[in-house]
Design a protein around this nucleic acid. Structure first.
Lengths: 198, 198
DNA sequence: ATCAAAATATGATAAAGAACATTTTTAGAG
DNA sequence: CTCTAAAAATGTTCTTTATCATATTTTGAT
């Protein structure tokens, strides 16, 4: 067996990570397979040894955020998934709506960078999207008071505020207004959080 | 002067309206100029008599929502801009987050259908987007108690919730979860509204 | 060292699409 | 009715791209 199994796996991971960055920046149609492979230091020929088609790559790129770049994100924000504390939800909201996140075109959350692409895309990409959202909602939910069946609702609304605030911010040409929106979304998100923590 | 001025204007408006629908459905890259012109009952040749390029058409299509399809929308929701009443904000929230809106791929608000396209697009499209958002925020703001400087913040957060809830809903493959998110966003939006109306 | 299977590279195809140049059609002015 | 400028249609170019077929390279096992 020439080429160790790890080699193929490493190559595949590199392609996915490269694709994640490029898709984040340019969207599904703005990225060609050539572009991805070149950026990964390969040529387009090998692509179909790793993936069925471009859609599959897209879906995996979206999903890869959760355990890859997203994990770094949570770490930077001081969010420890294995040891959740009430103030972590606050930190998560602040980090998600921060100018740093807005400026991080490569590392940003795909829910912000790619919602239209995913809405129009195949079901696989949508499944990846749903997994991301569920992770985010579950993080907020876990930070609430233990026995209230409405926690999930609050958590979902907070997620909608975070994503909505950033999606709006990204599409606005006036950076002052964009900041206003992020601040407004953040304040309201924390207000909703305190409802859930009551 | 052959061809009355109205004729050209009518043709131009028809192209923009056709483009609005197609862009809403397929996104910027998913729509070709041929497609738009054919759907409008014309051929691609005439396009550049009306528009500088595809970007300009896109920007105008987004903007056209406000006074065109969006006006019908507000009317259906019982929102009269010239005579605002407190309960209109409620109706607006309900209509925006309704399943009817979610299913109206042609008529939906471009902030939901095209945020990624616009974020990556030219400044003209982003200006159009900003105008749409400002109209929405201003509608919520006007429905709040008169003299509170934080009204604008509440209104922006409500808009972020509405847009965020719908953007998420659109990208989720599980329609039950999608509905949950819309309901959660709607409830929280009304909660924030009552804060502003206090 | 050599072999072969797996990975990667190269070559090719067919389609789509933005932009524009040129031709044709239209309808109002004289 | 004729003329003509504007609008619309047709023809064309050049580029990009997803996909796949074929060739080449790599490397662990013999």
């Amino acid at each position: 067996m020439p080429y160790s199994a790890e080699h193929k796996d490493k190559t595949r991971k590199k392609i996915v990570e490269t694709a994640r960055v490029l898709f984040n920046r340019h969207g599904f149609n703005g990225v060609s397979i050539d572009m991805v492979m070149q950026e990964a230091g390969l040529t387009r020929g090998g692509f179909y040894n790793h993936f069925k088609n471009k859609e599959q790559l897209f879906s995996e790129a979206v999903m890869s955020f959760l355990m890859g770049r997203g994990a770094e994100w949570r770490e930077d924000a001081g969010v420890d998934v294995s040891n959740l504390q009430p103030e972590m939800a606050h930190q998560m909201i602040n980090a998600y709506l921060s100018p740093e996140h807005l400026n991080d075109l490569d590392g940003q959350c795909p829910m912000i960078a790619l919602p239209s692409d995913i809405a129009r895309g195949g079901i696989e990409a949508q499944q990846s999207f749903q997994t991301l959202l569920e992770a985010m909602v579950s993080l907020f939910e876990t930070n609430m008071s233990s026995d209230d069946s409405t926690n999930r609702q609050w958590a979902q609304a907070i997620a909608a505020l975070c994503v909505g605030g950033m999606v709006l911010s990204r599409a606005l040409p006036d950076s002052t207004l964009a900041k206003e929106v992020r601040v407004a979304a953040g304040q309201s998100a924390k207000r909703l959080l305190s409802e859930g923590q009551r």
